[in-house]
Amino acid sequence: MTVYNREEVLLQATNVQLTFDQHPILRDINFCIRNITRPGLLQGQVVTLIGRSGIGKTQLFKVLSGLQAPTAGQITIHNNKSVKAGDMGVIFQNYYLFEWRTVYQSLMLAAKKNKQLWGMEKQTIERYAEQFQLTEHLHVYPQQLSGGQRQRVSILQQLLKGSDFILLDEPFSGLDVCMIDKAVELLLQVSLSDELKTLIIVSHDIEHSVAISDTVFILGTEPGKEGATIKKEIDLIERDLAWRKDIRREKRFVETIEEIKACL
């Protein structure tokens, strides 16, 4: 069993409700993400929010990112500070980038927003670009990038912005099998870059998301109640299913996937 500790609260969702035209979309959303520490390692957090298509995942994604204000309740980060747009790094499903900016310009826009990088923006971009295999593509426009390159630029842009939280909306959607493996590697690399780095993956791709997560929250509806809520929390560390590269081959992992599917 891996040695770890769950320490201070990094993100707290309290009684979040979202209603459109008196029609509840989300209700009673309560969960918290704690800082996970492992001796001798910079271990970030990877949390997955799983739910069926159309259940309200994207709306919860927008609420978490501060792009959509909840009807009631709140999302707090860093010692009770209410989340607002810009606090989180957000990677949209189709990896949207400004089409009129070159990759370098897009990255520079983000780097300039990060006070810790002031004066070192150029060097940092070059260093990260090499790490993300983007050096050759720094001076091209997004339209000239492949899906995988676009994804790396999107992630890098949000990393340069310097937020501890990175929200990813369906990061595996539209990628082929090889690209999914690369994306998984990349996300793991990001999660290990800083102790407080927290990836929140909103997805319906159960297998890939769960394989890289430490915690899973299942979003679903309950009989007789309108609006989606967190139906179940699964601690993958407790089940010894987290931080293991070949986990997908294990029977216990397959059983957990089945358990999640049954909950949806």
Binding site: G66, L67, A85, G86, V90, F92, F98
Partner: peptide, 9 residues
């Protein structure tokens, strides 16, 4: 485009 601007602060 607006959302990306917002997320960039």
């Amino acid at each position: 485009e607006y959302e990306l601007c917002k997320t960039l602060g």
